Simulated assay, not measured.
Amino acid sequence: MRTFAAALTAACLIATPLAAQPDAFRTGPVFTDFGQTADVETTMAIPADAQFAVAFDTATRADVGEINRTLNSAARFINMHVAAGVPRENIRVAVVVHGQASLDLTRAEFYAARQDGAEDANAAAIEALLANNVQIILCGQTAAYYEIGLGDLLPGVDMALSAMTAHALLQQEGFTVNPF
């Protein structure tokens, strides 16, 4: 029961916006504008030679003015592991996007036309993630459904035949899927 309560508390903290998080949460060392984490005393050691290849999956669009939760989680994953001593070059991360989350990957004009003129808060986060070698991949089937062309995507975002294809190819490259 204690483990369940701890997991529930952690899940609630992860879902809480940055502004409402306890003082223990901060950004960095890689991403300083998002990807907040807390230092944690652990009993599960991370081996000095640990290698991570993790794919995140999302179909949930961010609220207007907010960063997509999964993009934030990808930054959190990198921040927390680098802070814990894992060399940045030992961490590979990909984000596979489908469903309504696809809008979060589009250029300003496309996004604004579908969000009453709003600015996409994800653009800067995507630029930072891409600059740190995070792959961001859009499901082509979703793109076709929402009439998103290659020219509608933010620079650096890749288009796969499908999210299923992207995950299968990433798995062949040694990526595991993060369940969060």
Rank of each mutant, 00 (worst) to 15 (best):
D49T: 07
D49I: 10
A50Q: 13
A50P: 00
Q51G: 01
F52I: 03
F52E: 07
A53H: 13
V54T: 15
A55L: 07
D57F: 15
A59K: 11
A59E: 10
T60D: 14
R61T: 07
R61F: 03
R61D: 10
D63R: 15
V64M: 09
G65D: 08
E66K: 13
E66M: 13
E66I: 02
I67K: 09
I67Q: 04
N68L: 03
R69C: 00
N72W: 13
S73G: 09
S73L: 11
A75S: 09
R76H: 05
I78L: 11
N79P: 05
N79T: 03
N79G: 08
N79L: 08
M80F: 01
H81R: 15
H81W: 06
V82N: 11
V82R: 07
A84Y: 02
A84M: 07
G85N: 10
G85Y: 07
V86N: 12
P87K: 08
P87L: 08
I91D: 02
V93I: 09
V93P: 05
V96E: 06
H98V: 04
G99Y: 03
G99F: 01
Q100F: 14
A101S: 12
S102M: 13
S102P: 00
D104A: 10
L105D: 07
T106M: 06
T106Q: 04
R107K: 15
R107Y: 03
E109A: 14
E109W: 13
F110N: 08
R114N: 13
Q115P: 03
Q115V: 12
Q115S: 15
D116L: 10
D116S: 15
D116T: 14
G117N: 11
A118H: 12
A118C: 12
D120E: 01
N122Q: 11
N122E: 13
N122D: 15
A124K: 15
A124T: 15
A124V: 12
E127H: 15
L129A: 06
L130C: 01
A131G: 09
N132P: 01
N132Q: 06
N133P: 00
N133I: 00
N133Y: 07
V134K: 08
Q135S: 13
Q135G: 07
I136D: 03
I136K: 02
I136M: 02
L138W: 01
G140V: 06
G140H: 03
Q141T: 11
T142V: 10
Y145W: 02
Y146P: 00
E147A: 06
E147N: 09
I148T: 12
G149C: 04
L150T: 14
L150Y: 11
G151S: 08
G151E: 09
G151T: 10
L153V: 10
P155F: 15
P155S: 06
G156F: 06
G156D: 03
G156W: 11
M159Q: 08
A160K: 02
A160R: 05
A160L: 05
S162R: 05
T165W: 05
T165A: 10
T165D: 04
A166L: 04
A168P: 00
L169S: 03
L169C: 06
L170P: 02
L170C: 07
E173V: 00
E173S: 08
E173F: 13
G174E: 03
